[in-house]
Amino acid sequence: MKEIKNEEFGGERPLFASHGLRLDNVTVHAGESALKECSDIEAVNCRFEGKYPFWHVDRFRISHCTFTPGARAALWYSTALVMNDTLVEAPKMFREMDGVSLSKVRIPDAQETLWHCRNIICRDCEVENADYLFMHCTGIRIDGWRQKGNYSFQYCRDVEIRNARIESKDAFWNTENVTVCDSELHGEYLGWHSRNLRLVRCHISGTQPLCYADNLVLEHCTFDADCDLAFEESSLKAVVDSHITSVKNPTSGSIQAPSIGEVIIDGNVKAPADCKIILNDPS
Rank of each mutant, 00 (worst) to 15 (best):
L23T: 08
A34H: 00
H29L: 02
V28I: 03
V28P: 10
K36E: 11
V28D: 05
S33R: 13
S39I: 03
E32M: 03
G31F: 00
G20C: 04
E37Q: 07
D40E: 14
V26R: 02
R22K: 14
V44K: 08
G31W: 06
L35D: 05
S39C: 04
G31I: 00
D40F: 08
A34F: 06
K36N: 02
D40Y: 12
V28G: 10
R47Q: 13
V28M: 03
C38M: 08
E32P: 11
L23N: 01
E32S: 11
N45R: 08
E42C: 06
N25G: 10
C46T: 03
R22E: 11
G31S: 05
T27D: 12
C38I: 09
A43D: 01
L23E: 05
A30W: 15
I41P: 02
N45P: 03
S18L: 10
V44E: 10
A34V: 01
A34E: 01
R47A: 03
L23I: 06
N25P: 06
G20H: 07
E37V: 04
N45Q: 07
S33L: 08
A43V: 00
V44T: 10
E42H: 12
H19W: 11
G31M: 02
H19L: 04
T27A: 07
K36R: 07
E32D: 14
E32W: 15
D40A: 10
V26P: 03
I41A: 01
E37M: 12
L21D: 09
T27G: 09
V44W: 12
L23F: 08
R47P: 13
A34N: 02
L23K: 06
N45M: 08
D24F: 14
A30I: 15
K36V: 07
L23Q: 01
A43Q: 04
A34D: 01
R22I: 14
S33F: 15
V28C: 01
A34Q: 02
V28A: 09
N45E: 09
R47F: 05
G31R: 00
C46E: 04
L23G: 00
C38T: 12
L35W: 05
L35R: 05
L21K: 10
R47E: 15
I41Q: 03
